[in-house]
């Protein structure tokens, strides 16, 4: 039987899953390569493992939400990602959704039982 910590961890991961995409898209309004993107997210308080980040970047690029290019920087080739025009539009809609959901949850949590 899972203990409280396991249950909390599972719920926490479920809660974070959708938000991570929003955070990544938001951060990529400025160009980043993987490592600096992770650092920027971490700096903003959003931790993400590289094992989850890179496949997500590929998926988002395949969906047309990101563009990428290989470029040399600091003596090594790096792949730089940036939000595409379509990605920008989708991000706008997702932010509206997020804001509405956040307000609804806040209203529910703020209610006296």
């Amino acid at each position: 039987m899972p203990n409280d910590a396991d249950v909390f961890e599972t719920l926490r991961q479920e809660l974070r899953r959708g938000s991570l995409i929003l955070a990544v898209l938001g951060q990529l309004r400025a160009e980043h390569y993987g490592y600096t993107l992770r650092k920027a997210l971490s700096h903003a308080g959003v931790e993400i493992e590289e094992g989850a980040l890179y496949p997500m970047l590929r998926r988002l690029e395949a969906q047309g939400l990101l563009t990428s290019e290989w470029r040399e920087e600091e003596r090594r080739n790096k792949r730089f990602y940036r939000l595409s025009t379509d990605g920008d539009a989708v991000l706008g809609r997702l932010v509206a959704e997020w804001t509405g959901l956040h307000a609804s949850v806040e209203a529910i949590l703020g209610k006296q039982p």
Binding site: G34, Y35, E50, Y54, W70, R76
Partner: peptide, 20 residues
Amino acid sequence: PERADIVAELRDEFLTQVES
């Protein structure tokens, strides 16, 4: 089809982490 590209990106990520 994606092998070389993904491995190159992971190599850069790992080496950057090590350098840091």
